[in-house]
Every structure is written in C-alpha cells, then in structure tokens.
Design a protein around this nucleic acid. Structure first.
Lengths: 343, 343
DNA sequence: CTTAGCACTCAGGGTAAAAGAGTGCTAAAA
DNA sequence: TTTTAGCACTCTTTTACCCTGAGTGCTAAG
C-alpha cells in the first residue's frame, strides 16, 4: 500500500529532524514545517506508527523513525545530494596525498573514509585466491643463504633473505631458478606443494632444501594474498554520538569493530553501494547500527570495499554521497594508476 | 625524611586496595588489615596526607594515593612479583604464534602487550637512520620495466617492479647493477643522491633513468626505515575502567592514543623499564594517566619499545612483571632468531 | 477532513530528607 | 607518649517526592 504524499513528507521531516537532533520529534515541529495543524500531524503520526514507520519511545514523547521508516526514507524519500565543491575538494585532497603509494591507499582507505564521513569506517581488500607466481629469481649470497625473489601474477614483487641449514653450491641456483620457473610458476599453492613432492628425489638434499624453502616462501605469499583483509578505523568517533553516551554500548560496538571486523557486511559482487539498516544486519552486534558500504574496482575484476558504521540515525544522504564519490575516485585512480605501477 | 615502617605498610595497603577497588580507602579497612585501631590509622592517614602521599577526595571520604604515593609505592613498597606459571605460559603462547614473522612481531607487539596486561598499549620501533643498502640487484623484465631488489644492511630485502618512460636495453642492467653496488651501496641517502648527480652525464638518459629510479626506490626504503614508528592498540579497553566511565574523558584519551601517538613517552637509551606516573608525564594529555614502558633489543644495538597506558590507579606490580617478561622474551627471540632469519 | 481544546501521561529536573561512610578530635587507657 | 574508644560532624549517595513541560490521544466543532 502506497503512502499518501503528505505522510511521506511527514516521515521525511521526522527522519531528517531526528537525524540531526537525536531527539524524538513532536507534532508541533512538523506542523510548523508543513503548515498544517499539529492535531492533523498527530493523526498522521498515529497512522504512521500503526504502519510501522514511526515509533514512540514512551506515550508522551515525540516520534522517532523505525528501521522500516529509515528504509523507506533511504529508498524513496531521501534526496540524493550532490556534493558541494568543498566536499569534493576535501575528498580529492585527502586522496591526493595517498595517491603515491597505491598499496598504502587500500589500508588507509578506512582512515580516509572515517575522516571524510566522521563515522567509524572499515576497508576490505578482498583476497585474490587465483593469484600465482609469475616469476622466481634466486640471488646468491653465500653457501648457506640466498635471496628468494617472487613476482606474483599481479606484478607484486616480494623478496626475502633465506637461510639454509645445509651448505649448497651457489652455482646451482641458476638451474634451480629455471626449474622453479618452468615447473612452479603459474601454479596454485596445492599444485606447487604437490610438485615439490615429485621432484624431491631428483635433487640433492641441499638443493631440494633451497627449492622447498623458496616454494614455501612463495606459497606463504600467495596465501597471504588470498586472505581477505579487513581494517577498521575511527571507532572512537562514536563516543561523540549521543547514542553511545552509555559506555557499555560504546564498548560493545568498539570491541566488535576491532575483534570481529571479519563479520562486517560484505555485499555481493556487482553492488556498488549497499545500505543496511539496524536489524537488516544479520550480525547480532550490529542490530542497532547501520552500515553503508561501497565497492571500488582495483582492476582485473578485483574489488575493494569501504564501509561506514554508525547508529541507525545516520546521515544517510551525506554518507552515501561522500562514500560513493570516494569509491568512484578510487576506481578511477586504480584504472589510471595501474597496471604500470608507480608514478 | 624516612617514613616509619608502619606508615609504609599503611601506604602500601591503601595503594593496593585502591588499585583493585577504585574507591577511596577508609581507616577501618586498613585497621582490620594491620591489627591496629582505626583511630590510629586515621592519625597516620592525616600525617601521610600532610606529607603528600595520600589525598582526600572530600572531607568525609577515605584516602586515595597521590602521585607521589604511587611513586613511593613503585620505588620501595611494591613487591616485585614473579609471574605465575600460567602467566608466563600465556605470554609464551601469545609470542609463539608470532615468532614466525619477525617483522610482524614488532607491529603486533602492541596488540600482544595490550591483551597480556589488559590496558591500552603501544609499540615503538625506533627507526634506524644508519641503515644503508648492502646490495643492489636489477632483474630484467622487458625494455620498459625491470625489478629493483635492495638488501639493506640489516638483511632485509625489498623489491618492486619499476616502469621506465624510456626504452632501455636490458643487457645493460648488469653493468648498472655493478655501478650501483660499487658506488651506491653502503652510502647514506644524501650521499646516494649526491652521487647520482655526479654520474648523470656519464650515462645515456634511459639508463640514467633506470639508475635513478632504483636509487630513489632504495632511498625511499631507507627513509621509511629511518622513521620511528609508533602503533597503539587496545584503546577501547579503557571503557571498562571506572575512571573512564565519563565518555568525554575516554574520548580524550582515545583520540590522543590514535592521533598523538608520536607523543607517547620514549625513555632514554639503556633504560629497560620506565614508569611514569600521572604528572610525571610531560604531556598534558597524559597528566592523569600512567605509562609503563619497556625496551627490548632487536640486535645491532637497535631497540624497540613496548608500553602500556592506563589510569594512575594501574596495577603496577602485574604490569611491570608481565611487560618486563614480554620485553625480555622479545630480546631473546631477536637474539636467537636473527641474524639468520626464518626458522 | 481539519482543527481547537482539554485532560492525561511520562521523563527529567530540583529539592529535601534519610542513610551511610568516614573523618577529626577529645579524653581515657596502656 | 602512643593507642584507642567514643562521639559529633561532614559530605556524598540514595531515595522519595513534587513539579514542570513536552507531547500525546481523544472529542467535538468548524
């Protein structure tokens, strides 16, 4: 059933007042705004309550939006704000400094978002489990150590000094390198370790040790890269919000944000922006918070996420506008900046 | 002037009661403990107040320790606890998992400490500005890109794919590598960039570009490594402490811990453990908190720091014992674990 | 359908009294 | 001289209570 135009206006007004005052909104406030008497508004209030869009903290208080009230607001009533020049400039500015180190940008994305929207934020870099090693290099150091260099298929290069318990002849490193590149490059972790078994008897023990150390190292890198990484920041911002004046509530949310960040919502692929209001969050601990989360493209079909966590009384219009802009900017950055890395 | 034995006992008792109750301690509590009448205790209280070791929140309340009371307690009265087997086991256990990735251990040190002592913690890895490049390697990729590998004097190896705007002949990379190793290895950042100038006209533009990209990359690594890095964790733990039931106080400390972490105390070299009580902290924002900070050796005369921040009513005995043990364990780990890295 | 009017409800603020914890002081006991 | 019992006093905390004000729901008139 469709709401009357006036009911929508009233709901919108209540939501917006409540968003910036955090206090129940009375009929008088709305009546002044819409130019109808408060009694009329009260009648409408009563119906909106009945329909489940508004709630009453207690009999003699004003109304506050229910989760479905917010939902309707977000879906239909909210004006999609465009950002002011100051806002875009602020976000551009924040991104500009970070543009240099692309890798850092992802882990810092949360911090930026948090400062941009003034809510706690999180950043997810979805792991790439399809990653393989594109190239191995072995650099000789001495008879008991060498440097393993691994370039993954996303053009990241990692390297580490490796020590071996068995002496080996550095002259053989070049052969080993070729072996690695022909038989281990392009393989998954499982394939690599399977293949490692099969060559174990074709090599001298000391060279096999070098080989396996390198493969293990590479395997560790792939595993690390396949993990989804979630970072949260700005949790302390909630302490300025009236809904978290209660230290225990604040503590609950804050510990969730640091200890359970893996359980923060991750929308399905292809959804650029998702808003989860209160009980729409499956996670119990987020039942009275809202989450807004946007995705951006990293390239190669990969994506990252940036999200915002706050009370259901969240400034959805501003948050969605800024977050979308931020995510779009990141997508652009990655489109331009990569794949030729650095400058 | 030396306090009487009994005054010391009383002070000790007051501090310890206050530490675990957070409530002013009355004469009756102490009288039961020491087997003297409460009136006697009251007389002693009055004198201890006069001497500045105790304070009275208001006329008819019990006593709480003053900062100098805590100081005396820490210096003379506190029993240096040895850890229980459970405690050492807990710490060993926490470290065991992290032993593998030594680099990670340092950034995670704060987290571990925080969970070990249940206060917010911080970890400082003091930058090494004497670091130089021990070895350069250049690996050929194609005519417009190559991999720069840099091993620093602390045996860390970093590498990155570099793109060049000018085509170059990969065959020359080996010469460039030798040039780098003979003229740039072992040099400071300033020396490297100075030398870069001097070779600019001895090389073709495209090779100079490769060279300078590599040197810049190395320089960036050295700069990064020279920076002191401070990480804080566990800030939300304060929300469980009665002194931070006031959201504003909590917020103040928490934002300090994230935004001003560089201003956390860093003791002079050679001090294994430092305790700063309330106003002993020069920093205004820490005026009514205490900080306990321990240092550990990384090797090569370098050190790291782990510290704990909490209310002046901190459990100094437990914190110092656990923190010391933790720092000593780290020192041992680094002594054994490095310089031959990994396993 | 809208609005004025009115009685009603309930949270929040303020004051007052009561309770409780602990003190300081005095005077007696050790 | 030191310790202790006793007692009046102080000050916070708790509870109760009332009052106020914001806001409601309902009714009846416009």
């Amino acid at each position: 059933m469709e709401l009357s135009e006036r009911k929508k206006q009233i709901l919108k007004a209540v939501v917006e007042h409540y968003i910036d005052s955090a206090e129940p909104v009375g009929s008088k406030t709305i009546s002044e705004e819409l130019g109808v008497s408060s009694a009329t508004i009260r009648n409408e209030f009563a119906e909106l309550c009945e329909l489940g869009y508004l709630e009453q903290p207690h009999t003699s208080a004003g109304r506050i939006p229910s989760p479905s009230g917010y939902r309707l607001y977000v879906n239909e009533l909210m004006e999609r704000r465009s950002l002011t020049p100051q806002e875009t400039e602020g976000i551009d500015e924040a991104l500009r400094g970070k543009l240099e180190d692309m890798g850092g940008a992802m882990t810092n994305a949360g911090q930026l978002v948090s400062s941009i929207v003034n809510y706690p934020a999180y950043s997810v870099t979805s792991g790439n489990s399809a990653l393989t090693v594109e190239r191995f290099e072995l650099l000789s150091v001495d008879e008991t150590s060498f440097i393993a260099v691994v370039m993954t298929s996303d053009k990241n290069v990692k390297s580490q000094l490796q020590g071996s318990e068995l002496r080996f002849d550095p002259a053989h490193l070049s052969d080993l390198k070729n072996l690695l590149n022909t038989h281990f490059a392009g393989k998954s972790r499982e394939e690599m370790s399977a293949h490692l078994m099969s060559v174990s008897d074709q090599l001298s023990p000391e060279l096999f040790l070098v080989l396996s150390k390198t493969v293990e190292y590479a395997s560790g890198i792939l595993e690390e890269a396949s993990k989804r990484d979630v970072e949260t920041t700005g949790a302390s911002r909630i302490l300025k919000m009236p809904e978290y004046r209660d230290v225990d509530r604040a503590h609950e949310l804050m510990t969730f944000l640091v200890d359970n960040k893996e359980n923060l919502p991750v929308p399905e692929d292809g959804v650029p922006l998702k808003i989860l209001i209160g009980p729409e969050n499956v996670n119990e601990a987020l039942r009275d918070t809202s989450v807004v989360v946007a995705s951006y493209d990293i390239g190669d079909g990969m994506r990252g996420l940036v999200g915002v966590v706050g009370p259901t009384r969240m400034d959805y219009a501003t948050v969605t506008a800024r977050l979308s802009y931020f995510a779009e900017s990141l997508t652009k950055m990655f489109g331009k900046g990569l794949p030729s890395p650095e400058e």
